[in-house]
Amino acid sequence: MGRVIVITSGKGGVGKTTTTANIGMALAQRNRKVVVVDADFGLRNLDLLLGLENRVVYTAVDVLSGQCRLEQALVKDKRRGNLVLLPAAQNRTKDSVNPAQMRQLISALTKVFDYVLVDSPAGIEMGFQNAIAAATEAIVVTTPEISAVRDADRVIGLLEANNIKKSGLIINRIRPKMVAVNDMMSVDDVTEILAIPLLGVVPEDEKVIVSTNKGEPLVLSGTPTQAGTAFENIARRLDGEKVEFLDLTVKDDLLSKIKSFFTRPI
């Protein structure tokens, strides 16, 4: 039986889909059998981030309506054959599927795959209810901003209320330089407030945009990037390895040395 993990955030645009694509790919690189499920019916994007948009023929809705078999809707990644995408329908709304149907689909997938990663839509309405319906674990993605943290907190409460006890936090798009001058909440600030275990920290990285442009998750690129390494580390932690968090403190130039001299605790 594979693990069913929902990736969710409450607020939109904090990096759920990027996280799903990268963790999915990183787990596949570790030779796990992975299916990423796009639960954002009506606004699907996961196919784009994986560069698989041209190969989508059937969707989850077609499987549920009996128009195709589950295997026909699954799109296999050419770079990593053990990574598979179950696309969402683009021409339907979030109400075209219900939680019972999602459970039905996902329980079939757990028989074959080690990991079922469900990319949840933003919000806490029907689409969110569908996404969490079959999950036993959750990854909550947030950024160090007030609105994202508040929404993440709301989602954590809903996950607990829906009996999803195992949640890990990913803090995305952190800018170490801004944290150093007290213009952004730090990793510790956010984890203290949200009070769930930290699964990973991903620094702001322009390479993320380049990789979405190409439809190629960062973890695939030959040259290591900060964000890519962060996603790889998250995948390793999910897989049970103990991995240190990236050191994101600003490098010691003269100014920061002077600063830390004067601001050190007495």
């Binding site: 007030i146 001058v181 407030i193 100014l255 600063k259 004067f262 601001t263």
Partner: peptide
């Protein structure tokens, strides 16, 4: 140069706002 001089930095402010609202 001395961030502690400025007690009302935006990082502390956002934490306080968040704690109250949460």
């Amino acid at each position: 140069i001395f961030p502690t001089l400025n007690d009302r930095n935006s990082r502390q402010e956002v934490k306080n706002r968040l704690k109250l609202i949460l």
